[in-house]
Amino acid sequence: MQIFVKTLTGKTITLEVEPSDTIENVKAKIQDKEGIPPDQQRLIFNGKQLEDGRTLSDYNIQKDSTLHLVLR
Rank of each mutant, 00 (worst) to 15 (best):
R42A: 11
E51Q: 09
K29Y: 09
Q41I: 06
D52Y: 03
K29N: 05
Q40M: 09
I30G: 01
I3E: 00
T22F: 10
D58H: 14
N46P: 01
Q2F: 11
L43R: 00
L69H: 01
T55S: 09
P38R: 09
D39I: 09
T9H: 04
S65G: 15
R42Y: 12
E34A: 10
N46T: 05
T22G: 02
V17P: 03
P38E: 10
L67K: 01
K6S: 08
P19M: 12
N60P: 02
Q40A: 14
R72T: 14
T12L: 02
L15H: 01
M1T: 02
Q31W: 04
V70G: 04
K27H: 02
E18T: 06
V5E: 00
G35S: 10
Q31I: 10
T7G: 08
G35K: 05
L43F: 05
Q31Y: 10
L69V: 11
R42Q: 15
F45G: 12
L69K: 00
I44G: 02
T9G: 11
L8M: 06
S57D: 12
I44R: 04
S65V: 04
D58S: 15
Q41P: 04
V17Y: 09
L43D: 00
F45T: 07
V5N: 00
T55D: 14
E24W: 02
E16R: 04
M1K: 14
L67G: 01
I36T: 06
D39Y: 12
T12F: 10
F4N: 09
D58V: 12
H68F: 09
L56T: 15
V70N: 03
I61P: 01
N25V: 13
T66L: 07
T22W: 13
E16K: 07
Y59F: 15
Q2P: 15
K48Q: 07
Y59S: 06
T66A: 05
K11M: 10
D52S: 09
K33N: 12
M1H: 07
D32E: 08
N60L: 04
E16N: 15
T9L: 03
V5F: 09
N25L: 09
V5G: 01
Q62T: 04
I30V: 03
K27N: 02
